[in-house]
């Protein structure tokens, strides 16, 4: 409705206001980049220790497209490493999402499951996933598996906790309404409880995907021989700080993109919420 009115009566200077808001957004990052470039070129630090953004960009471009071979063995390998890391994130995060939602729904719904299962999980939860690295390596060796295991550990708990919270805070009357319409317990879970908990579940997924990238990179530094985290650590040994920073940038970009992917999925699945969110009021 609102979009239609806007089209009928375009506000004066709308295009200019959009440009203005874009300028507001990019001013600070641009200033940081310029300052960094200037500082690196000033010679205050040896350029090798803090490469300017232009050098990072050049390294990244060569790593991606093998332009001038300046990244040597790594030239043109970016996509391979990105895919290696992404597949670990996807596997670990996917398993965590599946198991986290199932167990979380169980704990939130049933007193019995809560009593029997939750204490164990709560005792495991404070152990930082990174501290599992030695065991992960001796159990799974040096390959994809320990990384997937760590990613799973890192994203499982946020998904689990948010699912439990979502299920426990459901409006009781929704369950009553479902039962009134003849839902069996299984139908209630599938048709009422899980959909009602979805906003919380998605909050957990978004936190979870963040930890997933953190742990992939950590695992790749120690226990795997491919992936963006591996490149970061390996180039550090060769004093290629432009590549280190290019890896950091790549990880940031991937994390950002996966968050956007989940957000897009969330907006689709939770489109029923649209009318009641603050964002839509801001238009």
């Amino acid at each position: 409705m609102r979009a239609a009115t806007e089209r009928l009566y375009p506000a004066p200077g709308l295009a200019w206001r959009q440009i203005q808001s874009k300028i507001e957004r990019i001013t600070v990052p641009l200033l940081i980049l310029i300052g960094w470039e200037a500082f690196s070129r000033s010679g205050y630090l040896p350029p090798a220790l803090l490469p300017p953004p232009s050098a990072v960009l050049a390294a990244l471009a060569d790593w991606m497209f093998a332009i001038d071979g300046s990244t040597q063995d790594y030239a043109g390998t970016w996509i391979r490493h990105v895919l290696a890391s992404s597949s670990r994130v996807a596997a670990g995060f996917g398993i965590a999402a599946l198991i986290g939602v199932i167990i979380g729904t169980g704990i939130g719904w049933s007193r019995f499951i809560e009593k029997t299962v939750e204490p164990t999980l709560q005792m495991l939860r404070p152990i930082p996933p990174v501290s599992w690295i030695p065991l992960a390596i001796i159990w799974f060796g040096i390959a994809d598996k320990p990384a997937i295991f760590l990613v799973f550990l890192g994203s499982f708990f946020p998904i689990l906790m948010n699912t439990i919270h979502g299920v426990k805070t459901i409006d009781r009357n929704l369950i009553r309404a479902g039962a009134m319409m003849g839902a069996s317990e299984r139908q209630l879970l599938w048709n009422v409880v899980v959909p009602a908990a979805l906003p919380s579940i998605f909050a957990g997924l978004r936190i979870g995907v963040g930890s997933a990238w953190m742990l992939t990179v950590t695992a790749e530094m120690v226990a795997v021989k491919s992936g963006v985290g591996y490149v970061l650590w390996d180039t550090y040994y060769f004093l290629r700080y432009d590549m280190v920073i290019a890896s950091m940038v790549s990880i940031g970009l991937l994390g950002y993109l996966s968050d956007i992917a989940i957000k897009l999925l969330m907006n689709r699945v939770l489109r029923w919420q649209r009318a009641s969110t603050i964002q839509s009021r801001e238009g």
């Binding site: 409006d171 009357n173 929704l174 009553r176 309404a177 479902g178 039962a179 009134m180 319409m181 003849g182 009422v192 959909p195 009602a196 979805l198 939770l270 029923w272 919420q273």
Partner: peptide, 21 residues
Amino acid sequence: QKPGADRGVVFQQPTLMPWLN
């Protein structure tokens, strides 16, 4: 003994499934 579709309930608040049209 338990709720059932032979008794329709209209609640004080509408209590609709917010994700369904």
